[in-house]
Amino acid sequence: MKGWQQFWRQLSLFGLLALVLTGCGKDELSALKPSGPVAAMQYDLMKLSSAIMIGVFIVVMLIFTYVLIRYRKRPGQQGIPKQVEGNHALEILWTVIPFLLLIVMAVPTVTTGFALHEEYPKEEALQVKVTAHQFWWEFEYPDLGVATAQDLVLPVGKKVQFHLTSADVMHAFWIPALGGKIDTNPGQENKMWLQADKTGIFYGKCAELCGASHALMDFKVEVMDQAAFDKWIDGMKGVQSKDPAVATSPGAAQGQEIFNKSCLGCHAVAGKGGKLGPNLTNFADRERVAGILEHTPENVAKWLKDPQKEKTGNNMPNLNLDDAQVKALVEYMSTLSVK
């Protein structure tokens, strides 16, 4: 029986594969590339626990291999092996050692656990209210009087205290590179803090099955330095305290007319509009359309033509717009910017 040889060959292959894979992972997305203190603490715990576990695994595998090589029945081997009942010393040994290893893991588990559940008041942290919807994200900065959607904008190096809930089913809010996830439960508020230590774009995901387009419930986190953030807030506040600006170019004006008629009931722009769909005040500044499509005029048009095709089961109906209407809307929407 050459089984064990094959087994080892295969296991080393996996080791290799593991190395290749760990090297990968996108900076913006991977939990293995932490970009903030929360993710970093979690990464440290992952490293500690996997190091201990890999140590145990190696011990198990050494004994395993030795036993399989040494004690397989040889041709012509006779007699009956000694029937051993047990060995108290050994059995105590492998009860106590794992126990000690667990204590090594338990201590940081407890300390980190409580550190992550700290709650920061508005003097110490930016407060952000997150409301999850099938299949999009609403973000409000209650102390600053600003609301947005899909793209979460944060200042770098500052703690952010999230208050999370859901408008429909359960979702989970997850920005792997910044920290672990927490569920958004309808009818309840959960709290979590995060902090980004690098500027740039990070990827956020919904991690709880929430319906047909759960896979497409992505969002982006845009982290900027404090000055840029303050400027963004000022821009948003300036626009959202007033009625929507009147579009100037003829195409956009036509688009705005359609928008006011068919879209404003669900979508807010500036200080006006409904809350059934994402706030579009700064739509033109966003990374993606509907969280998933690259932000190009073609993709905006594609979305408007048939939102159900891009995201099955989402709550924006197909409004049966003709090409001219779509074109006008795309032009109008490209003016929705605060930058």
Partner: peptide, 20 residues
């Protein structure tokens, strides 16, 4: 291996990353 990842999952702060 399954048991070991189980212990890793038992560490709540790290589980916030692994979960789901």
């Amino acid at each position: 291996i399954g048991g070991m990842t189980g212990v890793m999952l038992a560490v709540p702060p790290a589980d916030y990353q692994y979960h789901d």
